[in-house]
Design a protein around this nucleic acid. Structure first.
Lengths: 251, 251
DNA sequence: CTCAATTTGTTCGTATGTATG
DNA sequence: ACATACATACGAACAAATTGA
């Protein structure tokens, strides 16, 4: 590698061994997605991009060839490279921030249940509550128009599961849970972190190993503080969006 | 590439051109981080990993060499590879879900203000409110023990900025905003999505181009529905954590 | 119409990285 | 550790198409 290339590297070196042309490609893809360049626009010239990213001509080309393969842009000799397609309109799987809006949209979803052996209950955190005596473990994939958008690993307290076993294996667990009259939910909370796809998640969501994901962990407990439900749900990173009202609008 | 390797690839092919040994390394790193293997534990054998990831032995070694370079594990001929260091304890920069807990922790933070030319106000969405007449644009980086954890681009309505210009250039804008008595905040909301670092963000946060990030967009408006503040804040993905109470616990 | 500037397309040689068996 | 194949990345030079003066 030349000195010039080295110079532009900082301490991200270690992580940043992702091929340069892929890095460049994603930045360009993002600019198109974010409307920096609209459909019909001419994007920056090879030379400009060369300088901006401090890479060789051929490397920029390689990136643009990728986008061209995706049908996003088209290059014309002597004229430039033009955006010919907008990207992703069906984005955003809304992640809920309150119980009702969490349940409502998934009430009628039909998860595709995956075969699963029992799995030890994930460690509960201080705050979560006290564990139930036994749990049933379920795994499923949720799809929307054929595309998977969520991979769920769910533990349900055995005595809860027993009240509607068929329901739990054909519908979204949280929806079922919310409908069982016999149980009184005292608390439900959710933690969301940015993660990256492990082998399982990559397979079930059809994304690359290590692709960015949002990992939600939802815990529901009853009046006694007993944890009834623990759901770990992985979403592809580019689907998820969270809306949070910090100070709510009045009327 | 051999047939064997090809076989294990699905449609993620396109994205998954990231070198295999890097993919393997991150998965292993993650397992250690998540406690799948604790300090002192022997991790899976080369042979097991070979089969799990369907790569050649040398490729697994390459991944393990990386971790060894990071001081995470150590291999012993004839014995196996052992975890010798836990990873990341100071994780989690809590992202707030209500106004008070958003403000409180950053009240005393001292942002490092970056030079910046004026920038057009980002497009407001339907829901956001009506724009003010003019905005002041500020950029800053927030650090914690030397490490940057947030890169902020902020627009503040000019008439608000004018009430405490010095404050705004030395303290976190939201904190200042919340203290100005003359203005009545009617609404504040925040949107969080999973993104990836562009050139700017990568530079200021010291992470790799395209590394996963959390992108928060916070909008504050006054009684008249005029937008006083628009903050776009980028966090490194592995710092951010959101806690959401869906059904709050009572006393 | 010609000329120069701009911009993409193509090719060569070289070096290093990745991955297999 | 070795031999092999292919991918990534650089720089540089030149070709070909387009545009506008």
């Amino acid at each position: 590698m030349t000195n010039r290339a080295r110079k532009s590297m900082t301490r991200q070196d270690a992580d940043s061994r992702v091929p340069r042309y892929l890095q460049v490609a994603s930045v360009l893809r993002r600019r198109i997605r974010d409307g920096h360049w609209a459909v019909g626009d001419k994007i920056a010239t090879l030379e400009e991009l060369e300088h901006e990213f401090d890479v060789a001509r051929v490397t920029v080309r390689q990136a643009i060839d990728l986008l061209q393969g995706e049908g996003l842009v088209k290059s014309f000799q002597g004229r430039g490279t033009f955006v010919i397609k907008a990207v992703q309109s069906n984005r955003w799987m809304q992640l809920a921030t309150d119980w009702e809006s969490l349940i409502a949209p998934i009430r009628d979803h039909v998860p595709q249940v995956l075969p699963s052996e029992p799995r030890p209950v994930p460690r509960l955190e201080e705050d979560d509550g006290t564990p139930a005596e036994a749990y049933v473990f379920l795994r499923s994939v949720q799809k929307r128009s054929g595309k998977p958008y969520a991979y769920a690993r769910v533990h349900i307290a055995k005595h809860v599961y027993a009240q509607a076993p068929k329901q739990f294996s054909t519908r979204v667990a949280l929806a079922v849970l919310s409908e069982i009259k016999e149980i009184a939910i005292q608390r439900a909370h959710q933690t969301v972190v940015v993660g990256s796809a492990d082998i399982e998640a990559a397979r079930h969501l059809g994304i690359a190993l290590n692709a960015p994901t949002a990992e939600a962990r939802c815990v529901v407990s009853d009046k006694g503080g007993v944890v009834l439900y623990i759901g770990e749900i992985t979403y592809p990173g580019d689907y998820v969006r969270l809306n949070i009202e910090l100070i709510a609008q009045e009327g």
